[in-house]
Amino acid sequence: MAARNEAPRRVVVNREGPILVEGPVEVVGDDGTTTRSDRFVVAICTCRRSRTYPWCDTSHRRRKPAGPSESRPDGRQPQEGEEDPRS
């Protein structure tokens, strides 16, 4: 916890991205688990798509469809754990 005489901790919110919090940060999940990061700024996932939750892994990004010549050689759609950010 920051001492009272220090500047307030800055939190930057962004409609399309993670919440940025000046580190170090501890995040307590609803299951009671605590995750800690000592980074100078920590990006906390708000879209819930991150595979490294609670930290952002850029899974919130918009996707562009692969073009006709760019489809997968086997014609499959991305499977869970591959490229679908909502997996």
């Binding site: 850029t58 990004r61 918009r62 996707r63 562009k64 469809p65 692969a66 073009g67 010549s69 760019e70 489809s71 997968r72 050689p73 759609q77 991305p78 591959e82 490229e83």
Partner: peptide
């Protein structure tokens, strides 16, 4: 730069290696 292609676009080394 922030638009991620869905799947392999045929030019991505990381997609190939994955």
């Amino acid at each position: 730069l922030q638009l991620e292609p869905v799947g392999d676009d045929g030019h991505s080394v990381s997609h190939h290696l994955q």
